[in-house]
Design a protein around this nucleic acid. Sequence first.
DNA 1: CCTCTTTAATTCGATGCTCGAAATAATTAG
DNA 2: CTAATTATTTCGAGCATCGAATTAAAGAGG
Lengths: 414, 414
Amino acid sequence: MQVKAGSDLVRKQNRAVVIAALRKRLRLSRTELSAATSLSPSTVSAITSDLMNENVVLELREPDNGLVKRGRPQIALALNPARATIAAVELSLNLMSVVISDYSGMILNETADNFNTGTTNSVDILTRMTSSIQKCMEPVSSQLSAIVVAVQGRTDAEGRDLLWSPISPGRDVQLADILEAEFSAPVTIANDCSMIAAALRWQNAERYGRDFLAVLLSHGIGMGLYLNGRLFSGTKSSAAEFGHMQYKADGALCRCGSKGCIEAYAGDYAIWRSAYRLPEDALPPADLTAIDMRQLAARARSTDGPERRAYKQAAAAIGHGLANLFALIDSVPVAFVGSGTAAFDIMEPDIEAAIRNSNAGAYDVLLDFDLYDSETPLIRLGSIMTALLSVDEQITGAGETIQSIVQTNWRALA
Amino acid sequence: MQVKAGSDLVRKQNRAVVIAALRKRLRLSRTELSAATSLSPSTVSAITSDLMNENVVLELREPDNGLVKRGRPQIALALNPARATIAAVELSLNLMSVVISDYSGMILNETADNFNTGTTNSVDILTRMTSSIQKCMEPVSSQLSAIVVAVQGRTDAEGRDLLWSPISPGRDVQLADILEAEFSAPVTIANDCSMIAAALRWQNAERYGRDFLAVLLSHGIGMGLYLNGRLFSGTKSSAAEFGHMQYKADGALCRCGSKGCIEAYAGDYAIWRSAYRLPEDALPPADLTAIDMRQLAARARSTDGPERRAYKQAAAAIGHGLANLFALIDSVPVAFVGSGTAAFDIMEPDIEAAIRNSNAGAYDVLLDFDLYDSETPLIRLGSIMTALLSVDEQITGAGETIQSIVQTNWRALA
DNA sequence: CCTCTTTAATTCGATGCTCGAAATAATTAG
DNA sequence: CTAATTATTTCGAGCATCGAATTAAAGAGG
C-alpha cells in the first residue's frame, strides 16, 4: 500500500529534480534551474546552497560565455566532477573491460583484459575483475562510489547475482556481495542489453522516451525493454529473455540447453549452423568472427541458397518473437543493435511479414526500426550513466520512496 | 523527468493513505488509523476532520462492540456510503449487466439485459447501455460519480475506446466519451480480464499482491496481469493479449482473423473444432454451452480419442504461451478462471510439460496454479472496486502525481 | 568617473504541513 | 464521587515552499 509522506520527502524530491536537471543539461545558472524545474528562485537558492556545502555542485565562474548582456551575469552551476568516482565493467565473451569515470561522466581511465571466459571458473573471473578494477583505479586517487557490471546473461531482479551466463560455466555467482566487500561501494550487476537500452534512452530521450525495445543481434539474441519510462525486468531475474522465447516446440538446440528458442534460429551461431546445414542439435564452435558472418551475408545476398534460407529463417524467428511481444505490450520502436544488423537488409522483409501476419498486425502496428552496428559503446554509456544515477540517488537521500499518490486512471488498485 | 513536490502533495498523499486504509479495513478509529498509516494522531485528526467536512467519512457511534474497556472509547470511522454512487457494467457475449453500488461498496441495484450482441451494431449497444444504466439508477436518487465498463475485447490504453471485441462487429467505439456526455461522470472502459485480476488482488492481497496472472479459459482466452503491484497494459491498447500470441505460424484460424493464435487451439470453440475434426480454418458456431463442453471433457477423460487429443493440444498451446510469457517476466502464480477450468485436470500435465520443456523451465520455475470456475463475480467485483478507487482518487485530489523520487536501484534512468 | 538601468541571487515573512507534548474528553474501576 | 485509563484535540516547534522586497553585479550613457 501507499506510504505516508512528510516534508523531508519533498526536499529529497526537489533535490533530486535539481540534480537531474544538472545531470542532463550539464551547466545551468540558478535562474535557469528555476525555469527548468519550475521551483521558485528562493527554493533553488536553498537547495543549491546545500548541494554546494555537500560538494555536489560547483560554481563555474571562469568562462564568460561571450555574449555580453545587461544586468548581473548568471553564475553557471555544474555537478562537481570530484564528488564521486564510478567504475563501469563490461564482461562479455573473452573480454573484460573496465572504465573509470568521474561524477561528471568524464572518463578517467580504462583497461581491457582478454582471456578465455569459457574455460575460466567464476572464482577466477571474480579475481580478475577485482584486480582489473584496482589496476584501473591506480592512477585515480579516490574511492569508488558505485560499480556497475554489465554482463551477458541473466541476473537476479535486484541486480546482485549473476544467475547464468552463456560466456562462462558459473551459476548463481554472487558478484555484487563480493565486489561490495572488496570496494565498499554499492554494486549493481546488470544485463548488457538493459544497459544498451539505458544508453539509447539517455542519448535520445526524444525518440526513446517512454516505450521502446533494444534487440541485440549478435552471437546470441538479447533484449532491453523500457515501458512507461522504466526499465522492464522480471519478477525474480532480469528476464526479458526475448532470445529464449520459444519459436518452435522441440526445435533447434539453443546455447541455453533448451530447444526451439528464437536464438537457436537467429543467433550468429544458429544462422551459421543452418547455412552450413549442420544438424540442428549441434552447437558449432563459438568463435565465429564478424568477417565470417559478413561473408555469409554476402553469399545470402548474391544467391538464393542455404545461406539466404538461413537468414530468412532467422528473420521469421525474430518476427515471430516481436509479434508475440507486441501482442502483450503493443508495438513500440525497436532499435536493433550489434553485428547482426549488418545483415538486417536481408532479414527485414521477413521480420515485417511475420509481424503483419500475426494478430498484432491487425492493429495499427508500428514498424519503426533503427540500427546500431556496435553494442560496445552503448553498453559502456549505459553502465556509466546507471552508476552515476545511482550516486545521484545516494546523494538525494535514497532508500525511502514517495509512492505515486494517484496512479494513472484505473490502474490504481492500491 | 521527475517533477517538483510541494507540501500540498504531502497532504494529498496522506489523505489518500487514510482513505485507502478505510477502504480496506472498513471501520477504524482515529487511533487505529494512526497505527495503520504510521501518521501521528494529530495528523490523523486533522485529515479526518477535513474528510468529515467533505462528507467522505462518517463517525459511527452506535454499536458498542461488546467488549468493555477502560478509558475513553474509540469512535469508529467509516467511508460515508452516501458520498458517491458508481455503476459497474459488464458487456459480454449476449449479455449486458449493470450493478449500482454506493461508496462503501454495497450493491444498491442490478439489472441484466440479454440480447444478441453479435448482430447488434455499436450504436444500438450504446443505446441499450445508457438505458440499462438509467433504468438501474431509477430507484437510486443520486448522480453517478464513476462508471466502469468491463468488456471482452481490446480497449485503448487510456480506457476510453473499445477498439475491438469478439462479441460485436463494431470497431473503435468511443464508449467513454459518449457515456461521459450522457452521465457527466468519469467513465473507464476496461478489459474484462483486467477486472478479474483486479478482483483477485482485492480479494486476496496476500497471494495476489505484487505479481500474478489471471488467465480466462472460456470461449476465448484472455489475460490480466499484475506486475510490481500494478495492472499491466500495453502502450497503446489494453493489449496483454495472451490468447493472441502465436502458437503456430500459419496455424488454425482464430476468431480474431489471424492464424495460429493460442486461442485458436485453446478456446472452447477451438477445442470443439479439433475434437470434431472440423477443418482448422472453419469457425464453428459460437453457441457452445457449458454442458456441451462438459460432455466433451468427460469423453476426453474416458477414452483416448480425438477429444483427448484436442485438450492436449489446447494444453500445449497454453503451456507454450505461459513459457514465452515467463521468459519475459519470470514465473508468477497463475489463476485460471472460467468454464474452461472444468477440464483443467485433463490439461494440467501438458501445460506443465510445455513450461518445463522451455527455457523458463531451466530456472526454479514456479508452477502455482489456482482455479476459479466462474468469471462473472470476479468481473463484477473488479469493476466495482475499480470504480470506487477512481472515486477515491477524485477525492484525494487526483491529477498531479508525486513521482517516485528514488526508484529501486538501477531502474532509475530518469 | 559616476549614476542609472537591468538582471541574478538572496533574504525575509507568510503559509501549509507533520509531529511531539500538553491539555481535554469520555469512559471504567473502585 | 474520585482516580485511573485511554482517545482525541490543541498548540507550538520545525521544516519546506513561495512571493515580495532587498541586495549584488554587471553594462549603458553622459
